[in-house]
Amino acid sequence: MTTSRNLLPIEGLYAAVEARLKKVEMVRQQAERKLADLRDNISLMLPHELRTPLNGILAYGEILVSDAGTLTPGELVEMGQVILESAKRLQRLIENFLIYAQIELVATDQEALRQLREKKTVNPGEVVGEAALHVADRNRRRQDLELELTDAPVQISDMYLGKIAEELVDNAFKFSPLGTPVRVRLYPEDSWLVLAVMDRGRGMTPDQVARIGAYMQFQRKVQEQQGLGLGLAISKRLAELHGGGLRISSEPNQGTTVYAKLPLSNS
């Protein structure tokens, strides 16, 4: 009888260990699948995304080398400006790919995720305002920018909050006409801080909104998107990793509003 009583806890322990090992293996397989998807996405999209700015740099660089003596000072300045803008775009693309890869790796590491969520920003209005003004100047559209920012401490680092604001405001400027407003609002709502970016651009269909994901490009043959899918994917993923989310409201030919929701800080 004593032997029988002793066997039951051991059998239960074996079952618990086996269940734990299965769970660990499942988590490992999920992480490997995510990394494989990440590698596939980067290998498919990186060459295309890099080729456009590289083509501008190479084409104008070749002209400068072969025909510099026949060009006017104005033409030289114009070509130099194209090369500079292409190089800046290339730099930003590379940075975005690296950031996307980094945050996807963080998502598979519970300790890294915990540390990520411990960061907070006490002056989000200042961070969002600076990011929005920087993007407006880069697009030469400061006159179109409207800011309505309320400060409330939020559970995200100022670097990642600024990144979300930068990507959302940049998309709003890219896909709306010069002279139309881009409105940036920051306001508390229940236990959340909401960043809302509104434009009066061409908008998106419900199907396009539903299909937003990393590296997805909308109507590429109609209008060059220059990283719309990646920028929104980064913003969406950052919001989700901090316990929030991202929502898009859009109508074709009416405009788009993107809402990023982040948890308010309790301390």
Rank of each mutant, 00 (worst) to 15 (best):
L195P: 02
Q226M: 14
V209T: 06
R220W: 15
V24G: 05
R114V: 10
R89P: 05
A107D: 12
R140T: 14
I57C: 02
G129F: 07
L54P: 04
D40C: 12
V77D: 13
D144V: 06
Q102A: 12
S4Y: 04
L93S: 08
E251C: 08
D190W: 09
T121I: 07
G56C: 10
S66Y: 14
Q226F: 10
G229P: 05
F175A: 01
A16K: 11
V184G: 10
N123I: 01
T3R: 10
R92F: 05
V169E: 07
V106H: 07
G231S: 11
D190S: 05
L76S: 05
L232K: 00
A132M: 03
A260C: 11
A31M: 08
Q155N: 05
D37V: 12
R39I: 12
S191L: 03
L262Q: 00
A239K: 10
T121M: 06
L264H: 12
G61K: 13
P47N: 09
Q254V: 14
L230K: 00
L13T: 05
A101M: 11
E75K: 09
T257G: 08
V122M: 02
Q81C: 04
V182Q: 04
P53C: 03
R220P: 13
D207H: 13
S43I: 01
K236R: 14
L186W: 07
G69K: 15
L264I: 14
N96F: 03
P206L: 08
I164C: 05
N139Q: 13
A214E: 06
A172D: 05
L241P: 07
L90A: 09
I212G: 14
L113V: 09
L161S: 01
N171M: 03
D67Q: 15
R92W: 04
L168A: 08
L13D: 01
D144G: 05
P124S: 00
N139W: 10
L90S: 04
R33K: 15
G56Q: 13
L195K: 00
L35T: 03
P9I: 11
